[in-house]
Design a protein around this nucleic acid. Sequence first.
DNA 1: GTAACTGCAAAACGTTTGCACCGTT
DNA 2: AACGGTGCAAACGTTTTGCAGTTAC
Lengths: 144, 144
Amino acid sequence: MDEYLAILRKNRCKITPQRRAVIEALLNLHTFVTAQQILTYVKRIYPEMGLDTVYRNLNLLAAFGVVSQISIPGREGNLFELMNKNCHHHHLVCLDCGNAECLEYCPVTETGLKEMGSNGFQVVSHSLQFYGYCRECKEKSANQ
Amino acid sequence: MDEYLAILRKNRCKITPQRRAVIEALLNLHTFVTAQQILTYVKRIYPEMGLDTVYRNLNLLAAFGVVSQISIPGREGNLFELMNKNCHHHHLVCLDCGNAECLEYCPVTETGLKEMGSNGFQVVSHSLQFYGYCRECKEKSANQ
DNA sequence: GTAACTGCAAAACGTTTGCACCGTT
DNA sequence: AACGGTGCAAACGTTTTGCAGTTAC
């Protein structure tokens, strides 16, 4: 938490209770979540909080590179996640329940990235999602 | 084109001029495009065509696995592309102009995919985008 | 002839913005 | 005291839906 507050301070942003609450929600929910899910979480403490404030703070944190954002076709709304700087990772998205697990390692080959550079395209980042079925959903459908 | 009409027929869907036009737009525009871009293309021939018809047909084609859909954070609207069954490919998305180039080969390693399966998660597909700067935009910014 | 498809208009959805008030610094 | 942040409400852009009329089969 302090780590994130420091980033806010460094950029001359005020540290409001709502802002703390959004960060806390991201820390506790710990995978990709929608703005709505964050609001629901935060409303337990700040019932008067609005979705707009959630979005404003998510966009702010995203601008600082603290939050990353993906969107999964078929699921509505963008998903947000606290970026852990030390750990480049990807996601396993279940096509059944929609939950995302983290994949700690990156299966994109180094040689692959180099080859693209030679094409005149300078790669700065990549986004990779795997779709399939998680263990729970596989077992659930097997039991039917 | 016939290939796609055959899929429609097989699924007992009617082959309307609007439907042909959407497929033709996808064939001719040949990269990821927005529903709006398709509409603009199609309106030259069917000025009375509406965005809703474009969406309905894109969703229909997507349900048959003929069209794939991605969404790029920061760019508004989803992007659609005709899926070419014989060629699994990914995209190089320029963060400057927003255009997407195709990357014909897939830098995701086979061993990577196997490892995920052993985790209880059954991978059925993946989506990979590279972000960076295309040659044109790199040259443009160098000339400034 | 019938079911599917279209166009129109309106609704729905996630997200952003304008504004007056409030709270952090 | 000043500025940035909040809450509210309204706007926005994309996508979906209800409906009546039309068209492919």
